Computed example of a mutant assay.
Amino acid sequence: MTTEIILAGFGGQGILFAGKILAYCALMDNREISWLPSYGPEMRGGTANCSVCISDEPIGSPVVTNPDCLIAMNSPSYKKFIQAVKPNGLVLLDNSIVDEVCERKDITEISLPATDLATNAGLNGAANMVLLGRMLAETKMFSLETVQKAMEKCIPPKRAHLIAANMKAIELGMAQK
């Protein structure tokens, strides 16, 4: 089984980091992975997206054109990718920032105020992890233990203090039902 995911938003929202966490989760679970970042030269404030493929078999191409899942953290990204999501796909969006209305009836859309939830919990800048946590709760793709191991691999030792905050944001997202 192969799952293709696009994470998209503004540079600085942690899009590439969230994709990297997913990729490391797959690595921890001995799955095949590809992680393909895409961002403009302006990085922070510009657009950024990341394609992640997770599979039980070798992956032919890292390019995701029709994702099974979309995490959209801003309106331009939502508008750009919403029509590409496969029927029966999953879309998660941060409605603290994205105020679009989904016209599609063939997908599951989960809208939550990820930025507001993170800020209110004292986790400024962790909306990406809130959305990732909600996606993981919905898909049951990886266990919390696997996510913890991935965080420990992705976050360098000098920034290890960020692991707990990121895990708290993942758990906050998982609790949003």
Rank of each mutant, 00 (worst) to 15 (best):
C102N: 15
A84H: 12
M43E: 03
V85N: 11
P58T: 11
C50Y: 01
R31W: 02
E57Q: 13
V52L: 06
I54A: 06
R44I: 14
E57V: 09
A26C: 06
E32N: 12
V52A: 06
T65Q: 11
A121Q: 11
A126K: 14
E109F: 00
S34H: 02
L117Q: 06
R104Q: 11
A84V: 00
G40F: 01
C69P: 00
K105G: 10
C53D: 02
A48N: 02
C25I: 03
N128G: 02
P113N: 09
E42H: 01
N49W: 08
F81G: 09
I97V: 15
P58L: 06
D116C: 04
A84T: 15
I110C: 06
V98Q: 04
N49Q: 07
K105H: 01
G45N: 11
I71A: 04
L93R: 10
A118Y: 11
P113W: 02
G125C: 09
G46H: 01
N95V: 11
V98N: 03
C25L: 09
C53H: 08
P113C: 08
V85T: 13
I59C: 06
A114H: 04
V63G: 04
I54R: 04
M73P: 11
V85R: 10
G40H: 01
Q83Y: 03
L70R: 07
E109S: 10
V98W: 00
M43G: 01
E32M: 04
K105Q: 13
C50W: 01
N30P: 01
P87K: 09
R104A: 12
E103A: 14
E42Q: 13
G122Y: 11
T65V: 12
V98M: 04
A26N: 08
E42L: 13
D68L: 04
V101I: 14
A118W: 09
S55D: 13
A48T: 12
T108L: 13
I33Y: 05
S55R: 05
E32P: 01
G40Y: 00
A121M: 11
G125N: 04
G89L: 08
R44E: 10
V101L: 09
I71M: 09
Y78A: 03
F81D: 09
M28F: 03
L93C: 13
L90M: 12
I82R: 14
Y24K: 11
T115W: 02
S61I: 03
V101R: 10
C69A: 12
A26F: 05
L70E: 12
N30H: 15
I110H: 01
S75E: 15
D116Q: 13
E103D: 14
D68Y: 03
Y39Q: 07
E103Y: 00
Y39E: 10
S77D: 08
K105F: 00
C53G: 03
C25Q: 12
I97N: 05
S96V: 06
E32V: 03
E57I: 08
A114C: 10
S38R: 00
A84K: 14
M28Y: 04
E42T: 12
L90Y: 06
A127L: 06
D106T: 12
G46S: 13
E109G: 03
A26G: 15
P41Q: 09
S51L: 02
I54T: 05
